[in-house]
Design a protein around this nucleic acid. Structure first.
Lengths: 151, 151
DNA sequence: CCAATCCTTTACTTTTAAGTCAAGTATATA
DNA sequence: TATATACTTGACTTAAAAGTAAAGGATTGG
């Protein structure tokens, strides 16, 4: 029960994407890689996965890069987590030496895990990417609404 | 952000220990191993770790085994989790290619992780081992108060 | 249409956590 | 006090996740 690398770095990459919203071009893997101190290969992999989940949109070629595909004021950290995690159930995952869990049917702890997940996502689904992207966002958003007038 | 094997199986072993409270002898690794479908080696390792955390007390030799070391009506799932996890902070753990995190000092997401942990443990610290050990506990507790009169 | 940029995709290596093995120590009972 | 039981402990192996490498496919601009 702790934040995984995927969750931490995936969120951080998304924040970078959001903060570059106002820029003339979409933000590149290279730029994010430099900004976060991660390898380009790794950032590429993360963003590709986030694209498959529809959170981000990549365009190839010169002046390509990634841009956000959902409104950051609506997109929540909870949704981002779900995009990054395989959501396999404990009951199928922790079966010991057997095919299926010994406690299937009479399990006292599954309801607790479910409530815990509810609690967690109840919390994370209330935090938007915009909020966590922090103070720089307001400025970036303002830039963006200027219709990208070239300097 | 999901239940780890340590957490799932550790809790399940503890539940077994609690449920055997009323028995004449402390419960053995063998017995738990059979009950949960886990190897004896693994159960041994789990319980040993829980003993180091003071949640359980093992006695060696014939008629030895494990018994609970804290009142199950007071011991919470939160405390059990803390006993099973290394509690290293994300800031020290996810530093990318650098020695320390690029965002140290100006990090917008750390406060969120902290609040999330608060939420989680706020929930888990309210659930006692007795509660999650379930219906069989009442019977076991009754047995235990009979002062272990030999059959 | 050539070359540079930049994302896409799959295969591979490394690291970390999970889970096993085996030798050791303590205890109870005959 | 010998023996079987049962926890203890550290080293080892395996499996899963993290992270890397490299070749391929689009796109822009000259």
């Amino acid at each position: 029960m702790q934040i995984s690398p995927l969750e931490e770095y995936g969120l951080r990459c998304l924040i970078q994407v959001v903060r570059c919203q106002g820029d003339r071009n979409p933000v590149t893997i290279r730029r994010i890689s430099e900004g976060e101190g991660l390898s380009m290969a790794y950032v590429g992999k993360l963003l590709f996965q986030l694209q498959k989940a529809g959170l981000v949109q990549g365009t190839r070629g010169v002046q390509g890069g990634y841009k956000i595909a959902k409104d950051p004021q609506v997109l929540t950290v909870g949704e981002i987590f779900r995009a990054l995690n395989s959501l396999d159930e404990v009951c199928d995952k922790y079966t010991g030496d057997f095919e299926s869990c010994v406690h299937a049917g009479t399990c006292g702890i599954k309801p607790m895990w479910d409530k815990l997940a509810q609690q967690m996502y109840g919390f994370l689904d209330k935090i938007t990417l915009a909020e966590v992207a922090g103070p720089r966002l307001a400025a970036a958003a303002a830039e963006a609404t200027r219709q990208d007038v070239p300097a």
